[in-house]
Amino acid sequence: MSDSPLDWMALANKKAKGKRPEFFDEPEDDRIYSILIALVGEVSVLRTRLDTVERLLDEKGTISRDDIENFAPNREAGFERGALIREYILRVMRGPIQAMESLQEQEPPIEDVSRELKEI
């Protein structure tokens, strides 16, 4: 077997065989959404990295790249970092979460409320 070098960055992106479903009414929206969610993920990675840097600085006052790469949170830190990610996700997913809330309430359009207030 030859361990020929791979362009792993390109290969990582390989598409899975099988037609991709379209979720939105406009196919462009599917494409943009894929970029958006990937970006949401990468911002989360940056935040986690910053958290690592902060924790290492708190603990030792100085850091190296190796420290960052080898950082493994203890139980409490692991939970705190998970909570940080969750809070971040809830914030960026505000739109769908609020859409869900409004499904529960069946609110009238603001126009209707406006009309009502004029009369009372």
Binding site: V45, T48, R49, E69, I85, R86, L90, M93
Partner: peptide
């Protein structure tokens, strides 16, 4: 470090998708 952080994001994203948003 960042590869682990990517999985941490996805694990929590999946939790929000099923737990928080799933009932929607």
């Amino acid at each position: 470090h960042d590869e682990a952080a990517r999985f941490d994001f996805l694990a929590n994203f999946n939790k929000v998708l099923s737990g928080t948003l799933g009932p929607g």
